[in-house]
């Protein structure tokens, strides 16, 4: 864990305005924002812990909890909402057995919702990792997850 963080911190030096980019890099490295990393960042960059924490909790894209291998994003933007995004989310909640923002105990899936992915024409949209699934219906949920279950 230590190495990745040091590289990231070195890259940005003491430039405090880069806090969001640093947090993004940390999240890319560890898949979430580990508390120790944030504490170290605060110390190294001389930014109060409260500022780091405030920033990390403000943006939806950051997670302070360990996340699963596959991140399932359900779009609930206006277009997807109208086309039944909520129903897909509920279906995923049933299938994965976790609520919104939670991770399955086997650390395979984290279920999250977003407010628009910019591909409204194919709504309702679900994104798993980097793969997009458009025109979702409830009966497509299970086959979609199957691939990622192994």
């Amino acid at each position: 864990m230590k190495d990745g963080l040091s590289v990231i911190l070195k890259k940005y030096g003491k430039d405090k305005s880069q806090l969001v980019s640093i947090l993004q890099d940390i999240q890319a490295e560890y898949n979430y924002l580990p508390r120790e990393a944030l504490e170290k960042l605060s110390k190294k960059m001389d930014i109060p812990q409260s500022h780091v924490y405030s920033m990390a909790t403000f943006f939806r894209a950051f997670s302070l909890n360990k996340r699963g291998k596959h991140i399932v994003n359900v779009c609930l933007g206006t277009a997807c909402h109208v086309r039944g995004g909520e129903l897909i989310l509920e279906s995923l909640e049933r299938q994965l057995g976790v609520g919104r923002g939670q991770t399955t105990p086997d650390l395979k899936f984290t279920l999250e919702s977003v407010n628009c992915m910019g591909c409204c024409a194919t709504g309702p949209v679900v994104k798993i990792g980097e793969e997009y699934f458009g025109h979702m219906t409830n009966d497509k949920v299970e086959p979609m997850l199957k691939k990622y279950r192994e």
Partner: peptide, 8 residues
């Protein structure tokens, strides 16, 4: 009321 049956 999940609408699955209606869709299918």
């Amino acid at each position: 009321k999940c609408r699955t049956c209606y869709d299918i």
